[in-house]
Amino acid sequence: MKKYIQVLKATLQEYFIYRLNFVMWRVRSVIQLLLLYFLWLVIFQKNQVVFGYDKSQILTYVLGVWALRALVLSTRTAEVGGEISRGDLSLYLLRPISYVKYWFSRDLADKIFNIGFFIVEAVILVFLLKPPLVFQTNLLLIFCTLFSIFIGIFLLFNISFLLGLSTFWAPEGEWGGPRFLFNIILDFFSGGLFPLDILPLLLFRFLQILPFPYLLFFPLNIYLGRLNTLQIFQGYLIMTFWLIVSTWLIKIVWQKGLRVYSAVGR
């Protein structure tokens, strides 16, 4: 455990070295938020309720998406593919550490840093924009939201890590494309652009089978009090299913991947 805490600390120190990179990344994140924020704001200039959401609910959703991007979707596992394709994985195989736990520690550091910045940015933006927000007072719903975020962090890590492991079978230098595609699908299907329940019912039902909506849309809808107990329980079941499947897949893919790994580039 101690060594992974050291990895976490070292990753945090990395951010302090490349401060400008991180600040710029956060600035970009705020810009992405502003696009959606103003888009929804203008929609509610002439409408009280749109797609079953009122103004405060939708603006809370937009700000919530922004928060969960920092907490759930932020990940360093995008670098896994590069390490495998360059042969840098060999350096880790020789060390007495778990490659999965190593990357999870780095992910945690990334989340800590992102959330730290997010809190400061959120205070400033809420002060400047003064959006009407939903403040949930039901402690049970807050707990359920936090629990879904907790599982979501592991789920995102598993899916993203698995994508990185696919590089074992992809020729050198071709891992960037799938990652780009994955990020676009992830953003849309997790509800990063809009709440997924505004989609046609059939499409929405289909998306609910996939793991993506449980990363952003599901926790935020619990927070907003839009889901009943059965729907929350159902969501947890699907999340747990995907978590077990993805963990199992990581084991299988890792073992099979190591057999084809030839340390190209080393």
């Binding site: 020729p171 960037g176 494309g177 780009f180 595609l181």
Partner: peptide, 8 residues
Amino acid sequence: SRFAAVVL
């Protein structure tokens, strides 16, 4: 890198 190009 045709595969990467198609995916991108």
